[in-house]
């Protein structure tokens, strides 16, 4: 089999996932897109492992082992990610990524004096969010 097939498919899947990460609003959809990206990497790993195990007589099967690891890590990541999304949803009432803007510069932060006030307001907002 031509190696370009799986490689190109992996690249396309990766970029699809990339688009999803960048464009989706719901945090769970972003997680799904991350899964897509991880799977693209997995496909690459498997394809190259198969290629190398024949071509270079590589018997370590590092590609497949790493694929398994990636799958396990992805499972862990999805668990933690969902827990975080749930916590955020519970605290903020939303799971939309573009509404979580605590790191934004406040609009009233204009002069050097108002920086402190903005930081204070920011902190207050965060405390409120944590509550």
């Amino acid at each position: 089999m031509h190696l370009a097939y799986p490689a190109v498919l992996a690249a396309l899947l990766f970029c699809t996932g990339l688009y999803g990460v960048l464009a989706r609003r719901n945090a769970i959809l972003v997680l799904m897109s991350v899964e897509l990206m991880l799977n693209a990497v997995n496909l690459n790993l498997v394809a190259f492992d198969v290629w190398l195990s024949e071509a270079a007589q590589d018997t370590l099967h590092s590609g497949q082992a790493l694929t398994l690891f990636t799958i396990a890590i992805a499972a862990a990541e999805i668990g933690i990610g969902l827990a975080i999304v749930l916590a955020v949803h519970r605290n903020r009432g939303t799971s939309d990524i573009d509404k979580l803007r605590d790191t934004a510069e406040g609009p009233e932060a204009d002069g050097p004096d108002s920086d402190a006030a903005a930081a204070q307001a920011d902190r207050a907002g965060k405390a409120e969010a944590a509550a």
Partner: peptide, 25 residues
């Protein structure tokens, strides 16, 4: 469902795809 970032995302994704596919092929 999509945020306002989608056109930037599309640009980045297409550019990345083009670069990757080119390199890989």
């Amino acid at each position: 469902a999509d945020s306002g970032n989608r056109w930037a995302a599309l640009t980045v994704a297409v550019a990345a795809a083009a670069a990757l596919v080119w390199v890989v092929v």
